[in-house]
Design a protein around this nucleic acid. Structure first.
Lengths: 215, 215
DNA sequence: GTCTATAATTAGATAGAC
DNA sequence: GTCTATCTAATTATAGAC
């Protein structure tokens, strides 16, 4: 393997190890030694490939949000009309939370206090998703096709209701003995979140447009 | 002030300071020095009043869960019938999440990986709440009075949908400029969570029993 | 690009005076 | 019960050989 390829391999291994360690123990709880050990390299490699521990943390989130954005874009492109876009997006959020619980684990650990890391995270990655959600939700709300919730509350009900079961899956397993990551359960959860937040038929007025219904 | 009273004052101040620091920075991120400083005492006082940092962390959660249990008990006692108990409980969960976001912040930081702290927390405090929820939810589900969700998923949709807006309120404020803790918004959120998870009229069969409806 | 060795901080906990 | 002073261990980051 050429030197540049080796470098990129090491860098990618460090990012993946950082995702696992930061998600499990938080920024302060994860040590650069444990991250390096998980990646199979020595600790000073982190400061060779990244400016600092905080820089590696940022690279981990860049990677996780790139994955999520790719899936959400796919969900939007394959949909026809606002309502179907929202439904596909909700399903994508649920499925992705189960596939990559690390994303929500990292998020929730940083979102409880204003900090440099939180402002970076919010402006760099969350803002654009929230803006897209807001425009979509407001258009559907005036047509009575979604639950009667303001955009901010709707955003957090959607994310919280869709992701906590997976970000807290170790707790859920202790409580119930069941596996939250079971594919059948995940699909039922996705269906339920769609049913809770959207209405197949508008409640307030306007039926002139033909509205796609799922059943 | 007598010596014993002084001691109890110091202990209570340490618990309250620990709640603030652990909720904001997690177990590893919060230092015993910062907790002592917030409580207005010197750092070694922690090891006089508590066996260890972990012991203080446990005392903080004991305090937070005692508060929550008191409110949930009140909500259940003032209700008539399973459906009203559930509705009151949902509203209590939303209001309490807004009043004490520290509880959910501490919880979510410990629930992403199996650890000694998580197993203690689950068995000591979460288990009983989950068992009560399970019995209640299953009785209502067979009568078609709640959303069609298994108990485990329902628990996490309820908690996640009710609490994330408040545990992540710094992020929510950055995103929207609005105040998630506004009382009117909180009540609207509570109403919405009740509407999402319960049905005023049963969908599947059985109407022989008179069912209390709100409005 | 990766290694060993180590510098510079900071952490939780304890000893002993008052 | 509370204080000052300090011990031991662990942390992030860097220096310099290969």
């Amino acid at each position: 393997m050429a030197r540049r390829e080796l470098s990129e391999t090491t860098r990618a291994a460090l990012v993946e190890a950082a995702i696992a360690e930061f998600a499990a123990h938080g920024f302060d709880g994860a040590s650069t030694r444990s991250i390096a050990a998980r990646a199979g390299v020595h600790q000073p490699q982190i400061n060779y490939h990244f400016e600092s521990k905080a820089d590696l943390w940022g690279a981990a989130l860049d990677h996780l949000f790139a994955e999520l954005s790719a899936e959400l874009t796919g969900a939007a492109l394959s949909a026809d009309g606002d309502l179907e876009v929202l439904r596909n997006s909700i399903r994508t959020v649920v499925r992705h939370a189960a596939k990559r619980p690390e994303l929500n684990r990292m998020m929730v650990k940083e979102s409880s206090v204003v900090s440099e890391r939180l402002t970076w995270l919010t402006e760099q990655h969350v803002r654009s998703l929230f803006d897209i959600h807001s425009a979509l939700w407001n258009r559907l709300r005036v047509k009575g096709q979604v639950a009667d919730l303001d955009v901010l509350t709707a955003f957090y009900v959607l994310i919280g209701g869709s992701t906590l079961l997976y970000s807290n899956s170790p707790e859920a397993r202790l409580l119930s003995g069941d596996d939250p990551m079971d594919p059948t359960r995940i699909e039922a959860h996705a269906d339920a979140m769609v049913a809770l937040l959207t209405r197949s038929t508008p409640v307030a007025a306007t039926r002139h447009h033909t509205t796609r219904t799922t059943t």
